[in-house]
Design a protein around this nucleic acid. Structure first.
Lengths: 222, 222
DNA sequence: ACTTCTCTACTTGTCTGAGGAGTTGTGCTA
DNA sequence: TAGCACAACTCCTCAGACAAGTAGAGAAGT
């Protein structure tokens, strides 16, 4: 039994093109063959291939320039992040966290408000209370880190951090379980120093301390 | 002074439709007038209005059903990253890019292979050729920056960069159009210095130069 | 009264041919 | 060698024709 629902040719053509772009047939910034080439190649008319191109242009994947051609402007809209994060190894996730959090930490030092400081302090104290259970400890730690990112007042960095949280959480839990210890006093100390730097509007120190902290975490990886 | 750069009619028509949808002329789920009505109404041909509709369909705003009509499926773009990026101001996007690219640049200095170096060099040369058109220049620039991120060999950083590409592209184009200049020789020079640092496995310099480069970009914002 | 069928008007989907407009590279000229 | 005209390419737009699908009105049957 074949397809009951028939998709319009233009939609099919758009999917076919996206497939080939994803497959690397044309790299970012490269020119696609002209419509007069693509149309017969896919077995459709010119206006159909044009509509397919417009569709992808609307999604931000292609851009057309009259007289010049059609160009790849993005490889694809981001696919399922869960999938990506699951595939990627932990080291890569931590490296991404370093990128986000170090920058966020520096921005936080410049922009933190008094209420940001209060929130961070509260999170730090809360974290200090949860030293028994591994999961609770990781969660409390995440809250603290998030409060720092929030103080950067950059919505995108916050969203990125939240994207990583679930994957990072699981990795941390496994890591701590294996090690049997959770940084303990040393981690507490460095957190306090980071908060201090942010309070003093010392962006450089805040960034450096955050980097050290996360690099130490990465170093613990098996 | 009007637009010097003439946008294609189809794009203008898409914007005009989006404007009217946002203005509440047609509610969510409602049917738009037929193509044969809209086309004369906007003073364009039928295929043109069709391409405009396809463009909005690609953005998830409209959906067409053969025989039935064109329907509004979303008042604004969907809930995904595109949406977040569109809402966030450009400064926030650049800050996020700084986070990603500075770290990527440092990692690239440590991990770049010879073939990475070749790809970066090729992208840099390509970029130098495209100095005329604004869009072309931005696209070539993106290819170069992406080749650096790729050399970091971290899939997550790459995906993050790709996520920003469409939004960043539009912002850069607007920015350069307003300024009328594109960094020119200075930008070329700093790119070469970044590539040199990566080639020499000098992570610190690579990171610092990348940061300076993007900070300069951010400083140009209105 | 209700269901089912059919027909018709209307809608989007697709193709083709034609000409307009912008870009790019080539080859000629000075 | 530098500058310029031109030709070949590209996408852009329109118009017309027909195919394919939908939905509503009305007829026919139960």
């Amino acid at each position: 039994m074949t397809q009951l629902r028939r998709e319009p040719l233009a939609e099919q053509a758009a999917e076919a093109l996206l497939e080939r772009i994803r497959g690397g047939e044309w790299a970012l910034g490269q020119k696609l063959p002209g419509e007069t080439t693509l149309a017969p190649q896919l077995g459709v008319g010119r206006s159909t291939i044009r509509e397919a191109i417009r569709h992808l242009a609307g999604r931000g994947v292609l851009a057309t320039r009259q007289g010049a051609g059609v160009f790849v402007t993005a490889l694809d809209e981001p696919e399922d992040w869960d999938q990506v994060l699951r595939r990627a190894d932990i080291a890569a996730v931590i490296e991404a966290r370093i990128a986000i959090e170090v920058e966020a930490s520096a921005l936080a030092a410049e922009r933190r408000t008094l209420s940001d400081l209060r929130a961070m302090k509260r999170a730090a104290e809360e974290r200090d209370l949860h030293r028994s259970g591994v999961e609770e400890h990781v969660d409390a730690d995440t809250v603290l880190h998030r409060s720092i990112v929030l103080a950067a007042h950059n919505q995108i960095l916050t969203e990125l951090f939240d994207t990583f949280t679930p994957r990072s959480r699981q990795a941390m839990i496994e890591l701590l379980r294996r090690r049997g210890e959770h940084g303990g006093e040393a981690d507490h100390l460095i957190h306090m120093r980071i908060l201090e730097a942010i309070a003093h509007r010392d962006a450089e120190s805040a960034a450096a301390l955050t980097r050290d902290h996360l690099l130490a975490l990465k170093a613990k990886l098996p």
